[in-house]
Computed example of a mutant assay.
Amino acid sequence: MADLLPPLKPIPIKDRLSILFIEKGHLDVLDGAFVVVDKTGVRTHIPVGGVVCLMLEPGTRVSHAAAALAARVGTLLVWVGEAGVRLYSSGQPGGARADRLLYQAMLALDEKLRLKVVRKMYAMRFGEEPPARRSVEQLRGIEGARVRETYKLIAKKYGVEWKARNYDTSDWDKADIPNRCLSAATACLYGVTEAAVLAAGYAPAIGFIHTGKPLSFVYDVADVYKFETVVPVAFRIAARKPINPEQQVRIACRDIFRESRLLERIIPGIEEMLAAGEVVPPVPPEESVPPAIPNPESLGDAGHRA
């Protein structure tokens, strides 16, 4: 009977649940599925490959079997701190495809091509073309000024007292509620974005606007969607001044990811950003590793489910 069962295939990013947070439990594998065992022995099963990324909070232990299963099914494991501050994340298969990496690196190393990509990111983020004859550094400065002003406008809309983006990862409680909410919200966005970047075969570290950081490209891509998704959520929650703002932000982020269909848009968005360089991507060799989470081929026409 086992031979009659179809082989397991990773579920495309766009069809998955975005994020799940795990706290004070042991993540292991039982009967081929993720299972979280708390201190009382209660087991909670998580569908294999049905989640984009698992956020592991303090007090969580992970078995070797769970890490291996996460890599096989393309679920990103993200170790986060008390307030969603990123600590470490596991890799995914397909995250180092030579053709995609060469394409991305070629665009990032050539200043003219890089500028085209940065201008496209700017246009996608703000809905208008950036000023002409500006360098990457000048556009970065213009973007920073617009971002600071946008924070003020959204805070005013929700009646939140806003001073500046400021937080200390070593002493989280010193930050005010708006900054705590924003950090928790952006951690959620960065997690699903990193999972999409890796699944598509690109390198998180090769950025265009952000540079010199392990997740530079993740920040570039996430910033395109930040102000239409998680920032309004963060300020809306902050306005309520809840007892546990981070938890409410995470739940609200999961909802906005679904409502905005974000997971369906990130990978096509990455392709659109890079296509602005107007160069032909290298042809992958026959022996190259395919995308980690490919879209399935449909047996019918466009009106049928894949």
Rank of each mutant, 00 (worst) to 15 (best):
L8K: 01
R16T: 06
L17N: 03
S18I: 01
I22E: 03
H26A: 05
V36D: 09
G41V: 10
V42I: 12
T44A: 11
I46P: 11
V51Y: 01
L54G: 06
P58Q: 08
V62W: 02
H64P: 01
L69I: 01
A71E: 07
A71I: 08
G74L: 03
T75C: 14
V78H: 06
V78N: 09
E82L: 10
A83Y: 14
G91H: 09
G94F: 01
G95T: 04
D99H: 14
R100C: 15
R100H: 14
L102Q: 13
L102K: 12
L107I: 08
L109D: 09
L115A: 08
L115F: 10
R125C: 03
R125T: 15
R125P: 03
E129M: 03
E129D: 14
P131H: 04
A132T: 10
R134H: 13
Q138K: 14
R146M: 15
R148S: 13
L153Q: 12
G159E: 10
E161M: 00
W162A: 02
K174P: 00
A175Y: 10
A175L: 11
N179P: 07
T186Q: 01
G191T: 05
G191E: 00
A196N: 05
L198Y: 00
A199D: 05
A199W: 00
P204C: 07
F208I: 08
I209C: 11
I209W: 02
I209T: 09
G212R: 05
P214E: 08
V218S: 06
V218M: 01
V221Y: 03
E228F: 04
V230F: 01
V231L: 05
V233C: 04
A234Y: 05
F235H: 06
R240K: 15
K241G: 04
I243Y: 03
Q247F: 07
Q248V: 00
Q248M: 14
R250P: 00
I251V: 14
C253E: 07
R261V: 03
L263W: 07
I270Y: 08
M273W: 03
L274V: 11
L274H: 07
A276K: 04
A276N: 08
V279M: 07
P281I: 01
E286D: 13
P294M: 11
E297K: 11
E297I: 13
A302M: 10
A306V: 00
